[in-house]
């Protein structure tokens, strides 16, 4: 689909959607959102980008093969679980650290790391399927 309007609008919308997807990932622990929803938003953004500029542009923007993204995501999710094992807890127990930065408490924990893993896995898997299908038409 070659449309100047779509391409121009896509630049802006895709950027906003990707930021929104990270925002969803970040706030998911306390408010509606989370890694899964965030990754779906990101996948939709890339789907839009692919429609406007073609799958090759998406691959160039991603820089890495989506299959690698999925694999790394799965690895991160696993590491998030294994960290607890090293700490002597059962697999996937949440570990938390709450450093104070400038008076504000920043809660960091392995569930966030796990959610990032989920985000990357789902994003990579959906993009693998989508790009493979789009490239069929070449």
């Amino acid at each position: 689909m070659d449309s100047l309007i779509l391409r121009t609008a896509t630049r802006l919308i895709v950027a906003l959607m990707l930021i929104f997807s990270l925002f969803l990932l970040w706030r998911g622990h306390n408010l509606p959102g989370g890694g899964f929803i965030g990754s779906l938003v990101a996948a939709t953004a890339f789907a839009l980008y692919a429609m406007a500029c073609g799958p090759a542009a998406v691959r160039a923007a991603l820089r890495v093969d989506p299959r690698l993204i999925a694999s790394v995501g799965l690895l991160i999710a696993m590491v998030a679980g294994v960290l607890a094992v090293f700490a002597g807890d059962p697999f996937l127990t949440g570990l938390w650290s709450k450093p104070e930065i400038g008076g504000a408490v920043l809660p960091l924990g392995t569930p966030l790391l796990f959610d990032i893993g989920v985000y990357l896995t789902v994003l990579g898997a959906v993009l693998s399927i989508m790009l493979a299908l789009e490239e069929r038409e070449d």
Binding site: P32, G35, F91, V118
Partner: peptide, 18 residues
């Protein structure tokens, strides 16, 4: 126990993470 207010997501990434 899980330091999160969004129960759905806390279940997903902590209580039932496996």
């Amino acid at each position: 126990e899980a330091f999160g207010r969004n129960i759905v997501n806390v279940i997903l990434v902590d209580f039932r993470a496996i």
